[in-house]
Nucleic acid binder design. Structure first.
Lengths: 372, 372
DNA sequence: ATCCATATGTCAAACCTTTGACTTAAACCC
DNA sequence: GGGTTTAAGTCAAAGGTTTGACATATGGAT
């Protein structure tokens, strides 16, 4: 039951620690050279010759502060000169707010997360919050993220991970000490979420292909256990039906180039009559391009390829890849807004960002060629 | 009863607040539904019928704990049952350690950072540390990272950002209240750093090209203000000279596909006799591949392309890209180790991870063709 | 019986900040 | 000029944890 620290620690005597927050007992005082001590409220108060409480009220712009204009100046000046910044731990202790948000995402390798993270960081920053990013790497149990909440490291959690029926996430949502907002995917039973219109985006892609005259199209989707994949696939299927097209769809266990490659390969083998393939991520699109090359299907003359989510990389692939751009930065921003709203007592709600995406047309797509 | 008449005034907060840590005064009590309170030390103590200090000593495995085996069992059991985790803020207050590390990186879009981040996260996790990732997005001043330290959010900083002569970073290193370790690049005057052997990696690439019979090679490098770019270029130049090859080198203002594209285009225009191009990042390699296609230089028959840093994406490009793999995950791990070492009083030092990289040969490189 | 170790815990201060309540002195009102 | 209001601050408690210094009871030796 007690998980010993696996590292070759010197003080391996400490076997059962770590379970409650600390891993090993370290020598607390190092031989550190005199390092400038952190400036505290008291330092500023002394410098300005006032009580710490006055300083606190002034720097926090508390309306209950009653100080003369002169004193206020003096305090602000001292704070600036000493580079004072409130210690978030101490503040959190009294306000029960750490002003920090945790952001859990499945991996950093998917370029789609870049704008989401940017949106999250910017919005959080503007609202005075810091963020802790945790990518859910293997060997790191999901417990780690519940711990963020339980250790009081963060006030709430943004989760871009998890499957449709994810008991663990539901457990955190129900019994964890802070609000959780799902971003980009939903989990059954979790009411707070913000997503983009993946279904609409798929429709946009199919509409576009239909316009170009494609009548038989392939679609590559992610794991059917994941909400996002389901919605993308549903949008694809509906659009295909609406236009009376023929289609072949494959599900893959991931969203990586590898999955796009094997997915496209299967489509091209089983239904060589397709003239276009829709990949549900950029990474998959890259894999699909490679499968096309390997199957001697020149792009776009013999096969068009389009994918979801634009990225600077798309522009420089061979050939450049046509994508559907979605407001992912906005997704990140909105997620932070909803989480803060919940922290302030707002109720749970599911948000879908408006917009079904816009085609960024590049050389990987073109008119359907006659096939027979 | 308290009227809780917290000023609902939106207060023209924007002006002078926020500078010392908080952005606006928010209503503290929301209409939040009864949320399970965080379990505290006192809760556990009450449940186990002992003093909080006993609990603290037991869960932290403090050798000064003097409790009977029975009591220890009781405490551990209660702690587990209640899901106790020490509040890091309160702990940090007394120990002056937050058990959190800040990691500042220039962007998340470069796939090279993925393994570094993974290494950092894993090592930190194993050592009982959490990490705060901050990508240095535009509009977010570098001050933000100094603040991490000054607000007591983190114990130390890992910095993968910054130019060779970076006054701001030097300033943090000298006057900030915690240690800073540079990762993957160095900054003049900052003694703690860990890097890979970029010079050796460039040499490995050139050696490989020379083996294939290439006599005229191009090299694309990053901004000459950045240490990493300088070392890569130096390694390239030395290897070229050692083999008596001819070369043409270009510097670019970034490491993106765009930079690789424009760089390669220029090389192919000014020195069409090159038979191979070395790009100093994967993203640049992607751009170079595109430039080759646009200049009707089939890869690899007319032009070989190789780049630094392997990634799963490389395998699926058209054609698959030959890379030099470097121990980047190890880089991340080592950086954390050094930072913790410094936190414990160790002295500053510069580390270079062993290994000059290994060629991952793919279809983008081949024997030099006879030219003209 | 008395005294000393030992085992087993408990006490209380400190860390830094926020915040409701309280104080002091001057200004104001009639 | 006595009483009241206001301006300008100060006081002290609280929040969760760690940690050096005490306290109490038990058992053993003398």
């Amino acid at each position: 039951m007690r998980a010993a620290a696996k590292a070759p620690t010197k003080t391996s005597s400490a076997s059962s620690s770590g379970e409650f927050g600390r891993v090993e007992t370290l020598p607390v005082t190092g031989g550190q050279a005199a390092r400038p001590r952190r400036t505290t409220l008291r330092d500023v108060a002394d410098a300005a010759n006032v009580d710490p409480s006055a300083v606190s009220r002034v720097v926090n712009n508390d309306p209950r502060a009653s100080v003369s204009e002169a004193t206020r100046k003096r305090i602000l000046e001292a704070a600036a000169r000493l580079g004072y910044r409130a210690n978030v731990g101490a503040r959190g202790l009294v306000t029960s707010r750490t002003w920090t948000i945790g952001f859990v995402l499945p991996s950093l390798s998917n370029p789609m997360y870049e704008p989401i993270v940017r949106g999250v960081e910017m919005e959080a920053d503007e609202r005075g919050y810091g963020i802790v990013v945790g990518s859910q790497i293997e060997g790191k149990s999901p417990r780690v993220f519940a711990n963020l909440l339980q250790e009081g490291r963060v006030d709430g959690l943004l989760v871009a991970s998890g499957t449709l029926h994810d008991d663990f996430i539901r457990e955190i949502v129900e019994h964890g000490p802070g609000p959780v907002v799902m971003v980009n995917r939903r989990v059954e039973g979790v009411k707070s979420s913000v997503v983009v219109d993946d279904e609409g985006a798929s429709r946009t892609a199919v509409d576009y292909l239909e316009c170009l005259g494609h009548r038989v199209v392939g679609g590559i989707f992610g794991p059917s256990k994941i909400d996002t994949a389901v919605r993308r696939k549903a949008g694809f299927a509906k659009a295909v039906a609406a236009h009376g097209l023929q289609s072949v769809e494959v599900d893959r266990p991931g969203w990586r180039p590898e999955d796009g490659f094997t997915g496209a390969r299967r489509i091209l083998k089983e239904a060589p009559e397709v003239t276009a393939i829709y990949a549900s991520t950029l990474l998959m699109g890259i894999g699909a391009l490679r499968a096309a090359a390997e199957n001697r299907r020149p792009v776009p003359s013999s096969l068009s390829v389009v994918c979801l989510h634009d990225s600077p990389i798309a522009e420089y692939l061979v050939p450049p890849l046509t994508t559907v751009r979605l407001p992912t930065e906005q997704l990140g921003r909105k997620a932070v807004q909803l989480l803060i709203e919940r922290l302030e007592g707002g109720r749970e709600r599911a948000i879908m960002i408006d917009g079904d995406g816009e085609i960024v047309e590049r050389a990987s797509s073109g008119p359907a060629s006659a096939w027979d």
